[in-house]
Structure formats: C-alpha cells, structure tokens
Design a protein around this nucleic acid. Structure first.
Lengths: 175, 175
DNA sequence: CTGTATCCCAGCGGATACTG
DNA sequence: CAGTATCCGCTGGGATACAG
C-alpha cells in the first residue's frame, strides 16, 4: 500500500484503502462507532463528571461542586452514567459517620481512560491559563498523553493510517 | 487483569498525589484542559465532521451528506472549525473541471488524531451493528486504538496514573 | 448530604426554501 | 456544487425552591 508520500493538501490526509463506493451506505444509523460513543458521553456534563471520577472524586457533593454543574444537572447526568454502566453507585462506610453512597467508575467506565487523557492532553496544547489539575504517571511524575497504536502493536502516526469499510458480518476483533 | 491492588470502591480509582486542598480553586474558568477541548470540538457535528475529514472527506457536499448533517448545520460548524484553526479551506483544481474549495485538516486539526481514534475505538467495544468504516494501520491492516503514555515514554495503565495540581506559572512541558 | 421539581433560556440540529 | 436564510422543536444546563 504504497503511500509513502506527504499528505499534502491535494490528497486526503488519511489515504483510503478498501472500496469506498459503498461508503454512503454506512452513513446513517448505528454504524459509526464515534457516534455511539457520543451518545453516551457526548455532553459536557458527562465528560467533566468522568474527569472528576478519574481525579478520584466520589461523593455527589464533591462531583457537583468541582465540575461547577448545578445539582439538578449533576444528578441527572450521574443517573444516566449509572444507567449506561459507566459509573456504579455503592454504599461507603466512613468510620465514625453514617453510611454514604458514592460513585465509582465501573470497568467499562475505566476503559474511557484513553479518551479522557486524549482530550485533556490536546487541551493542554491550547492557549490558556497555566495550572489546574493534570494526570501524571505516578512512578515518574511525567504528564500523560494518548498515542495511537494498532492491534499488532505498532505506533501509528496519522500518515500511516488508512480508512476502510468493514464488511458486515466480519467480526471486528479487539485484541 | 493484572494490576494487583484492586482499585476497589474504598479507594479512588486514580490515586492522588500532590496537595488537593487547593483543588477547588481550579474548578472554574479556563483551568481545565478538558473543557477547553470541549469548547472547540464538544458538539456532535464538530466531531463527526472531523471524523469525515480523517476519513479523507474534503468537499462540502461529501462532508454534509456522509455525516447526515443538514446543510445549514454543516456550513455553520465547518465555518467554526475553520475559524478555530482545525480545518483550512483551499482551492482545488481538478483537471477538466472548474476550481473548487475544499476543507483539509490543519496541523492543529491533525493533532486531534488520538482523540478521534480513542473515541472510535471505545465505541467499537459497545454493542451495535457490525460494519461501517474503521481506521487501520496502512502497513499491517490492523485496527487502531489509543493508549496512554507518559512524557517519559512509559505505557501507563489507569492504575498507574495520579492526579495532581499544577502550580500556576509552572510551564507544562509537552515533549 | 443527596438529591427532586419547576421554570427558563441559549444553542444544537432538522426542514425547507432560496442564491451564486 | 456550495452554501444562506428562516423557522422551529428538543435538550443541555442554570437558578431557585423543596424533600428525605
């Protein structure tokens, strides 16, 4: 698949392999994986609540205040995230105080880690006030970024990516 | 699932280092890098237009139809993406036909690659119809995923991440 | 402390019609 | 082909008040 080449302006950034004649057939409905993701976490409130969950936030009060969301919106979105299986609610006993409910990421929610990191990392490249909170590697203290890799383990830059249609019925394997 | 210390309910999923006493001070305004990202690409239309750009879509008609967006919405969002410096409009001469305008990703837009891949890759893990379009590594044909890495080059799983406050003025270096 | 209930507004996005 | 203009419904999210 020769595509040595500079992805300059007169060529698509991402080369196309496969047949794109049938591209339009996949436009609508539930085909697009990106849109499926957006249906679950496509709102600002969902993303920043997840951000706080990754930061370690657990109690309702904590999550609502630190996101700056109103109670109503926080409650509604948290409920949706629980319904969608990204957060789980469970009782939590603190010695000396009464039982509380807390929100924790489920295993599925935890798999959003690269998504959150990718967005935070990209946002860090924009102009804006320095400071805030960041995620780092606990062992070396370096900030996190998201990189693209293929299922075979190769690092993949944008110029090495190609878009192709998936045959219906062909099982997408996720190693 | 290796990670020995189960990040169970009574511990934050992501451990906290640094002082979080001042955490609330960073809640509002432009501190959060994730929110900065959401301001630019936080809408459904922006994300799926970028998706099509990564797939290689260039002309207005193509982008509007394949995203399923109405002309009005597509035009408005494309204009915003151009204003924000994620897409660029440039003339394009096809032999035998008249000059056309086309939308191409700018360098900044291209850096959104991990974000788009992360979201598509996560969406692929959800239930839904098989098929559609996917991004693969051109050389080996394997599908793409996004993984988290620190600036020092280590792969970082969620259990190895920590949240910390950034001192104001400390320059966030991006290697 | 953890929500629910109402009211309200702005923005997203669809549909349709129209322009260069 | 590449948009603009207008209208309109839906929902995201804020504010305020109330409840277990």
């Amino acid at each position: 698949m020769a595509h040595t080449q500079e992805p300059t302006a007169d060529r698509p950034v991402v080369s196309r392999i496969g047949r794109f004649a049938d591209r339009d057939a996949f436009t609508a409905e539930g085909w697009c994986k990106l849109e499926r993701t957006l249906e679950l976490v496509g709102t600002r409130s969902a993303m920043i609540l997840l951000r706080e969950a990754f930061y370690g936030g657990r109690r309702f009060d904590e999550l609502a205040r630190r996101t700056g969301l109103s109670d109503a919106v926080a409650a509604k979105r948290l409920k949706q995230l629980v319904d969608d299986g990204l957060l789980r609610q469970q009782p939590y006993q603190e010695p000396g105080s009464r039982t509380r409910q807390e929100y924790v990421l489920t295993e599925r929610g935890r798999t959003l880690f690269p998504v959150v990191v990718a967005m935070m990392s990209w946002g860090a490249t924009l102009e804006g006030r320095e400071g805030g909170v960041e995620l780092v590697h606990a062992e070396c203290g370096e900030p996190l970024t998201a990189v693209v890799r293929c299922a075979a383990g190769h690092d993949v830059g944008i110029e090495d990516a190609a878009a192709q249609t998936i045959r219906e019925g062909r099982k997408a394997r996720r190693s």
